[in-house]
Amino acid sequence: MELVGSKLWSEGPQFVLTDSSTWPDDSPPVKELPECRRSALVLSQEMDISHSCKFGNSFWRMQRVFGYIYRFLQRISKDRIRHKGELAVEEIKGGTHLLIKGIQHVHFAEDYKALTLKMKLSPRSKLLPLNPFIDAGGLMRVGGRLQNSQLDFDAKHPMILPKSHHITSSIIDHFHRKFLHAGAQSLLAALRQRFWPIGGRKTVFAVINKCIQCFRLKLVEHIMAPLSEDRVQPNRPFVISGVDFCGPFYSKSEVRNRPPTKCYIAIFVCFVSKATHLEVVEDLSTQSFIAALKRFKSLRGKPQTIWSDNATNFVGAKNELIELRQMFLSDPQNMELWNSLTSLEFHPTSFPALR
């Protein structure tokens, strides 16, 4: 109620209504208020103008924005070809270099200054393992040992990108979509054909994990079919087996000055215990496989079923077994001999079983 009738509250002090020359000089000193925060002014010779660009999340748009900046810089210079209309490839490439160079000047300022003055980098520098250098255009690139290769200059010496920067993330996202949502390993390999992001694998993983389309595809999991009876029921080792070839390998001859000979390995895998049996074969012929099969049978016992892919040597072995069976079964006296020789089931994937 006192404030309602107070003229000092509603009108202020009376001396403010008079001329300012008549105002009293004994004004109370201004004290530092506890709520005030101190502000620090930081001066920098370089400025990353990409932060103020509204297209910072799109590398495709940033290339064209800086492409027009590059065109403007070329127009104000002398003895330069002036382009009109849409951006040319050279202008987009020059704008990209202008964008990356501005980022490098700010985020690698100490390293850039040391390389410019031809001084050694600090032992704490993250760029020290990359052996960086500055090219003719002022870009900081990876050194490496590929100078004498036939790769492009960007592939031999990729441009270095800072780890935590929105342009680095937009570049990774751009290549992720360009290569049809490639995985981290293939994306990093394709990215390093032009750029070298610091902390590459973790940086790429961080960007891919934010991709909505990849996240939705991860939610759809394919349900695998149940295992076959041969895989889950107990049985003697190698009674039910699978066979395949690997190679070629080269074996050194015991004879001096003779070149190495080519050979292969037949791998027999037990379906129940996952035990493996290896047999060296000379070639991929049917006769070599039958010889390896006989050695396998003499050591591991007679298998009941062998599964294989539809390779030519496996099909040839099956056909020879069929002919051998018909030869024995044509004479009833040889029926008992056939049963004692083999009870093998041989399964190429696209042929019926041979019993």
Rank of each mutant, 00 (worst) to 15 (best):
I212M: 07
L151S: 08
Q104V: 03
F205N: 15
Q74G: 09
P129I: 01
D309C: 08
F55A: 12
L299W: 13
H105D: 12
R64Q: 09
P123G: 07
L321H: 07
I92K: 12
H165M: 12
P303F: 08
A317E: 05
R124Q: 11
S308D: 08
D79V: 03
F108D: 05
I290A: 05
R194K: 12
H347V: 13
K118R: 15
Y70K: 09
E229L: 08
V243F: 03
F175C: 06
R177S: 09
H176S: 07
F289Y: 03
R231Y: 09
L299Q: 10
R177L: 15
S122C: 05
F215E: 01
T312F: 03
V42M: 11
E11S: 04
N235Y: 05
P234T: 00
D331T: 10
N334G: 00
G143F: 09
K120D: 14
K218P: 06
I167L: 05
T203D: 04
W196F: 14
A291E: 15
N310L: 00
E86P: 08
F268N: 01
M327F: 14
V315S: 08
P352E: 03
H105A: 15
F351M: 07
I100V: 14
D309H: 04
L329W: 03
M119R: 14
E32T: 12
D25T: 10
R64M: 08
P248F: 14
L8D: 03
L99F: 07
A266W: 12
N209G: 03
V30H: 08
T168R: 05
A317Q: 01
R37F: 06
H97K: 10
G56F: 05
W307G: 02
L73T: 06
S253F: 02
F108R: 02
M335A: 10
P234Y: 01
F153L: 14
S149F: 10
N257R: 10
I100T: 07
S169K: 15
